[in-house]
């Protein structure tokens, strides 16, 4: 299992990196932590002509927290998020979700940008980006653009990133201090990709009714998804056992996961329902 032949470059600016990507007509790939790409190279499922390493690019490894939310540079690693105590307040949902990503060694290398660009439908970071309505900063030959998560994820391991583009930042909207939230996933073993997971947050109005519910699911479709019907059911209502049961049933109906070697689709759908019910209960505590 030796990777195929490729060239390697480690430019020092984003502009150089973009130019290198553009030079290969779609046959170059970005590598940073490499924790998703390297296995694909080992299996020769990816055969790029050129790898463009972001190692020497500056200013992509910061976690910036401000009034406009949390900005994660593309090179921010899982261990960086894990050790940033500010996030427990600034974005507890992110902090909780990232605890479930892979294992210790991978967490020292794997990056936010890599995970989002790889777009595994079971992965936590794309799920959080989708659930929270993140905005992606993307730089390419034509300049920079910003794309909403809902438009960014386009299919299984597919995004709107063009061959000459680099994802440089993931921006999560501001997090009110009183926000209710939960993240739950179920994997066969600790650190495995989730068989299904849910991320949710909502705020309460003065009367204790749910407003602005965001409910996302991973592992149940070809990309991370929002459960709009569940959100609609929650908004404007008080959370109680009846609402939880109804939302859970709605979640089960709103997904149609494919079957694979690890589980039939029906199991994943039921799992989303179970996790949603548990997550809503947890969010109320």
């Amino acid at each position: 299992m030796k990777p195929p032949i490729f060239e390697y470059a480690s430019p020092s600016t984003v502009a150089e990196a973009v130019a290198l990507l553009a030079s290969k007509d779609g046959n170059a790939k970005v590598i940073s932590g490499g924790q998703s790409l390297m296995p694909m190279l080992a299996f020769r499922l990816a055969t790029p002509e050129l790898l463009v390493d972001l190692k020497h690019l500056k200013n992509l490894d910061a976690i910036s927290i401000g009034e406009d939310g949390v900005r994660l540079g593309a090179k921010v690693r899982w261990c960086d998020i894990e050790s940033d105590a500010r996030l427990a307040v600034s974005h507890p949902l992110l902090a909780e979700a990232i605890k479930h990503v892979a294992h210790y060694q991978i967490r020292n290398r794997g990056t936010v940008g890599g995970s989002v660009a790889h777009a595994d439908p079971s992965a936590e970071m794309p799920g959080i980006a989708m659930t929270c309505g993140a905005r992606m900063t993307i730089v390419g030959s034509a300049g920079a653009r910003i794309e909403a998560a809902a438009d960014f994820f386009t299919g299984p391991l597919q995004t709107s990133l063009q061959p000459d583009e680099i994802l440089t930042e993931v921006h999560l909207p501001p997090w009110p201090a009183a926000r209710r939230w939960a993240f739950l996933e179920f994997a066969r073993r600790k650190g495995d990709f989730a068989m299904a997971g849910i991320a949710l947050h909502y705020d309460l109005d003065g009367a204790g009714r749910i407003v602005d519910a965001h409910v996302g699911a991973i592992g149940v479709a070809d990309r991370p998804i929002r459960l709009a019907a569940v959100e609609a059911m929650l908004n404007g209502n008080r959370l109680d056992d009846r609402l939880i049961a109804a939302a859970s049933a709605k979640a089960r109906q709103s997904v149609d996961p494919p079957s694979d070697i690890h589980a039939p689709g029906a199991y994943r759908a039921a799992l989303v329902a179970t996790l949603l019910a548990r997550g809503l209960k947890k969010s109320a505590v």
């Binding site: 296995p39 066969r188 073993r189 600790k190 650190g191 990709f193 070697i261």
Partner: peptide, 27 residues
């Protein structure tokens, strides 16, 4: 955990450690 899965055409579907699951320290 462990299962070597084949499809009806005799293709082995669990060809990596991502799919052939063995116990880990936390199990």
């Amino acid at each position: 955990l462990e299962h070597l899965v084949y499809d009806d055409e005799g293709q082995l579907l669990t060809g990596s450690f991502a799919d052939y699951l063995m116990p880990t320290a936390s199990d």
